[in-house]
Design a protein around this nucleic acid. Sequence first.
DNA 1: TTATCGATCACCT
DNA 2: GGTGATCGATAAA
Length: 216
Amino acid sequence: MTTQGSSPEAIRGVLSGDPRDVAPLLLGAVLSHRTSEGTVSVRLSEVEAYLGPKHSDQPDPGSHTYGGPTARNAPMFGPAGHLYVYFTYGMHYCANIVCGPDGVASALLLRAGEVVAGQALAQSRRRASRSPTDLASGPARLASALGLTTADSGRDALAEPFGLELPGTSAARSAVASGPRVGVAGDGGSADYPWRFWLSGDPTVSRYKAARGRTV
DNA sequence: TTATCGATCACCT
DNA sequence: GGTGATCGATAAA
């Protein structure tokens, strides 16, 4: 009685909804990446929703697509289920899964998870890690553990060499909590945008770090 | 334990 | 030319 056999088409259908509704469904899901070095799988414990510029109810100044299409954010304007990976702070990659209907440009940033397969490989990809719970506890850590770079941006997370399994019945899922997004400056990081979602009590959820104070 | 700071470059003004 | 959907080392307490 699980969704293990769900087709990519069915999963893509789920992801085509509003990311704020998809987020609780994606928590507990397992994303895998197969390479010549081996396969690493991460069970997602924390995500953040970012909306496209033409979203019906509320514009999102914190989203990379707020200013319209660019070369970098192009994958977000594509179909749900594809990866959007960007490079930031001169050294880190962060990965999203595109959500919503084609062209809406919404996505879910993968903020944290538990490495459930390929721990040794994930560990070797990380600069430092004190414990297994830290392996993918943070967006750049998670992308690093999975071996994702901008070369993977735009690729389909539902097809080889990737894979996504949604969690089974609701009985297998923990409670979902939500709150303001992390590291988002300006209004987009305020309580008006409580679009960070995580599995309540999960030890792999990243430690909260407030957005850099803006000059008032 | 919490706080501060440097790294280092793609993107946008 | 400034900033950033961050991390990890180091300092302070």
